[in-house]
Computed example of a mutant assay.
Amino acid sequence: MKSKFRHVALFGKHHTTVTGPALESSRRVLDDVAQFVSRIGADVVLEEGTSEHLGLNLYPTLKMSEIGKQCDLGLVVGGDGTMLGIGRQVAPYGLPLIGINQGRLGFITDIPIEQYAQTLKPMLMGNFEEEQRSMLHAQVWRDKHCVFDAFALNDVVVNRGATSGMVELRIEVDGRFVATQRADGLIVATPTGSTAYSLSVGGPLMHPNLGGWVLAPIAPHTLSNRPIVLPDTSKISIEIVSGRDASANFDMQSLASLMIGDQITVEQSSHKVRFLHPQGWNYFDTLRKKMHWNEGGA
């Protein structure tokens, strides 16, 4: 029985911090996964940047846009950070992704590297659970001109400068004034991002099937400023009222040196990220495992 997927793209870590033994380990793992997928009967290609950084030249390579158009599955070998970057880029093409966890936490790369062969084989045969995750579309406006445009699968974060005091932010939702907050910053998180930075500042966990965003202040001056859950149909506007060297982060993408009067708008992206999970997967299993909840039960 051959793979349900004919053209499979492999993605791995290829940022410059992966060197030495870690680089060799990543190269070996990618090569093992590629050979495994080939044996099942799928054509394997490597994403161009992954191939260049790891020095794997035994397989055809494609650019990200070519993968989106030509492949019917992506295998991401790495941690959640790798998956965030890949997910944003392939979402416009509707390419489904499977995550093999070579990192630490692995909320969205949920196949342990030690178990990839026995877990991946039935998935490639068509036995899997599919879900779609919503994304944020954010823009930075200055003097009525858009100076930055980005998507985020986890969150959009506005931060104070590293050496300055609090930043003051004017917040509107759907054109209605909400509050002017003095804080170290503000997070707009998706349900996927509710287990990331938002969680560390007291934001709630959100099931990924929920249609909402978390709006969570970072160390607010007024302790009654609490996280709030908003509909994902909302358009959020954040204006920099005061504070030096404020910055904005969109998952792993950053824009430094925001200016007084800059506005960051955040709304739902028209694209979603498709994740495939092993048959029987559910979100609560992930939470129990990754957050070390009491696993006793019936």
Rank of each mutant, 00 (worst) to 15 (best):
R244A: 14
V18Q: 07
L46T: 09
H207N: 10
P191Y: 04
L136E: 05
F107H: 07
L124T: 03
Y283M: 11
Q268H: 11
P122C: 07
L84E: 08
T17E: 11
S25C: 09
Q181K: 14
P191N: 05
N225Q: 13
A256K: 12
S51T: 04
A138P: 03
Y283P: 15
D72N: 12
G296F: 15
Y59F: 05
D232R: 05
E24G: 06
F107D: 03
G79F: 01
I187P: 03
G55W: 07
Q35L: 02
D31T: 08
S38M: 00
F11T: 02
E129H: 13
F151L: 15
H277N: 06
N209S: 15
D245V: 00
E66T: 04
R170P: 00
P217G: 12
R27Y: 06
G103A: 03
R142G: 00
A22C: 07
T265C: 04
L23C: 08
P278S: 13
T286A: 08
D232M: 08
R39A: 01
G165A: 14
P96D: 14
E47P: 00
S194M: 12
N282Q: 13
N154P: 13
R274Q: 09
A117Q: 15
F275A: 07
I40K: 05
P227Y: 03
R160H: 10
E129C: 14
G106F: 04
P227S: 14
P217S: 06
R160V: 12
K121C: 01
L73I: 10
G202R: 03
V266A: 01
A42I: 05
R27A: 03
S26M: 10
F11G: 04
E267T: 05
K63E: 09
L58V: 02
I236P: 02
M252P: 00
A256C: 07
E129I: 15
V214Y: 01
D31N: 04
Q115N: 14
E130L: 07
R27E: 02
R28W: 02
W293G: 15
K290F: 09
E239V: 10
F284N: 15
V178G: 12
G297D: 10
G185H: 00
P217N: 06
D184S: 03
W213Y: 15
R39P: 00
A162M: 14
E168C: 11
E48Y: 09
L186C: 04
D110Q: 11
D110N: 14
H271L: 02
T119I: 08
M166S: 13
S257W: 00
E130D: 05
T17N: 13
S51F: 00
H277D: 09
A42S: 15
G280S: 10
V158W: 01
H292L: 13
Q115R: 15
E172W: 04
F275R: 13
A219M: 11
A248G: 05
L186I: 05
L205Y: 07
K63Q: 11
V188R: 01
N101T: 08
S134M: 15
L205S: 08
M166H: 12
V157D: 03
A150G: 05
R170S: 07
P96M: 14
Q70Y: 07
R6D: 09
Q102D: 03
G87K: 08
N249W: 06
S3H: 05
S51A: 15
I108S: 08
L124A: 01
L169V: 03
H14W: 06
H292Y: 13
S65F: 06
